[in-house]
Design a protein around this nucleic acid. Structure first.
Length: 464
RNA sequence: GGCGGCGUAGCCAAGCGGUUAAGGCGAGGGACUGCAAAUCCCUUAUUCCCCGGUUCGAAUCCGGGCGCCGCCUCCA
């Protein structure tokens, strides 16, 4: 499998599972100061799908996603609400897990929280100081970017360019304006931990380094997140991790494109956001997932009501096919020509995902499978011969978190008989050409969520 | 200003040197139907923002424009 890595600015081959079975994957998680918005959800869904695809290919993925529970925004929110930072973090961490469930995301192998790793962070900072990559200024500790010659390699920036851009204010005690805080001395009323430099708290860029090292080792196979994290966050992580280990921090750097609204990045500060849970409630988990996966993960994706509705219809189309086919019992072996066409689509599907995880292309192939089946059915192929297509579609889309719902109507035996009775009654009315009453029955059943379809084989009904 | 990305039909969107330029939504016409619904068939990009170049061959590579976006400050 080939994936586009930010560091190489090109496709990088992932060693096949036969060669390297275990994959350590780290995806930047949320800061728990508020509910996540639908833009935050993009990497969670995309990289969840990637993880599950890798697992389906035979990899053993250790998937780590941090929860940032030490942060200015949490402190501010606590002040606003007259609550404590711990309470805010705890509450929104819980809400976050709720949202992951709603988004159909498989739970990460580990979800480390920064608070649990402060000791380890202090150790790491001490090491950086000892090696001359960091220095103490007052109660703060800064990383010295000049001490790390590769600084800027991920984002393609040079220290001098960054300085030339010069909106960088030299901070108090910083030797170089670009140096970043590893440890911040506590201000009154802020959460604090004891340290060799006095009470304070760790800077944001350190937690991912420490937690990923603890759980996945010095070199990650995959490090992923939104492309707004490339600089400075991931750049600063590389500086810390590689200054210490001398080894590459991650083999592959994956950065998803932003979710936009009318072309502008969705963000809390612009106010152009929707909470993820509200959108899921409105359109359903699978429409949301389909929406994300129908656009290549690195490209920007524009959010709109129309786009969600479209995704919903596309999902519905596949489900309609699945239920149509699965309602008929008994599998029949399809003609060879059909099987061959299906097999070539299957290969195409796999090629799409192998090639930079092109889920958009892969979903199109799924739709093509539906088209192929429908077309053959219309030209006389036994519907029972299509059961294999339904199975294949369900199978292939499992890693994507799509098309796994069983849509077998769950009604009681008695309800089934009652509906059957009405259908019979209506058939009799139609025979007498009493269409007014027949249509009324159909309309009233539809209002109750029972849809009737008159096919050449008779009337069938489905529940909505 | 520096770095990165994007511009393909009415809309969304694949495409990574040779394909009839995927797929979805929408629209129009037809088949089926008592009418619907569903489904199927046909039509909807001779052309990929513009201009040059490389090549037997370019949406795809190179150069130059134009337009949009992201990062350079917390941000998925």
């Amino acid at each position: 499998m080939r994936l586009w890595s930010t560091l190489e600015r090109g496709l990088v081959e992932l060693p096949p599972p036969e060669e390297k079975k275990r994959v350590g994957m780290y995806v930047c998680g949320p800061t728990v100061y508020d509910l996540i918005h639908i833009g935050n959800a993009r990497p969670f869904i995309v990289f969840d799908a990637l993880r599950r695809y890798l697992e389906s290919r035979g990899y053993e993925v250790v998937y780590v996603q941090n929860i940032t529970d030490i942060d200015d925004k949490i402190i501010n929110r606590a002040k606003e609400e007259g609550s404590s930072p711990e309470e805010i973090a705890e509450r929104f961490a819980r809400e976050y897990l709720e949202d992951l469930r709603a988004l159909g995301v498989k739970l990460p192998t580990y979800q480390p929280r920064a608070r649990a790793y402060v000791d380890k962070m202090i150790e790491l900072i001490e090491e950086l100081v000892a090696k001359g990559h960091a220095y103490v200024a007052g109660g703060d500790v800064y990383f010295s970017v000049r001490s790390f010659p590769d600084y800027g390699k991920l984002s393609g920036k040079s220290i001098d360019d960054l300085l030339a851009g010069a909106r960088v204010e030299p901070g108090e005690g910083k030797r170089d304006p670009l140096d970043f805080a590893l440890w911040k001395a506590a201000k009154p009323g802020e959460p604090k931990w004891p340290s060799p430099w006095g009470p304070g708290r760790p800077g944001w860029h350190t937690e991912c380094v420490v937690m990923s090292r603890e759980l996945l080792g010095e070199t990650l196979d995959i490090h992923a997140g939104g492309n707004d994290l490339v600089f400075p966050h991931h750049e600063n992580e590389i500086a810390q991790a590689e200054a210490l280990s001398g080894k590459p921090f991650a083999r592959l750097w994956l950065h998803n494109g932003m979710l936009t609204v009318k072309g502008e990045k969705m963000s809390k500060s612009l106010g152009n956001f929707y909470y993820a849970r509200d959108i899921v409630k409105l359109y359903g988990t699978e429409a949301v997932r389909y929406f994300y996966l129908s656009r290549h993960w690195r490209k920007p994706l524009d959010f709109s009501i129309e786009a969600l509705e479209e995704a919903q219809k596309a999902v519905e189309r596949v489900y309609k096919f699945l239920t149509d086919v699965e309602l008929v019992g008994g599998e029949v072996v399809p003609p060879q020509e059909f099987s061959e066409q299906l097999a070539s689509l299957r290969i195409k599907f796999e090629e799409e995902l192998e090639n930079d995880f092109n889920t958009a292309g892969a979903l199109a192939v799924l739709q093509e499978m539906v088209n192929l089946a429908r077309r053959c059915e219309a030209t006389g192929l036994d519907r029972r011969a299509l059961l294999g297509v339904a199975k294949l579609i369900r199978n292939l889309s499992e890693p994507l978190g799509l098309f796994q719902k069983e849509r077998v109507p769950t009604v009681s035996r008695r309800t089934e008989e009652l509906i059957g009775l009405l259908v019979e009654l209506r058939a009799a009315l139609r025979k007498e050409r009493n269409f007014r009453l027949a249509d009324e029955i159909r309309a009233k059943l539809a209002a109750l969520g029972v849809e009737l379809k008159d096919t050449p084989q008779g009337t069938v009904w489905t529940l909505r």
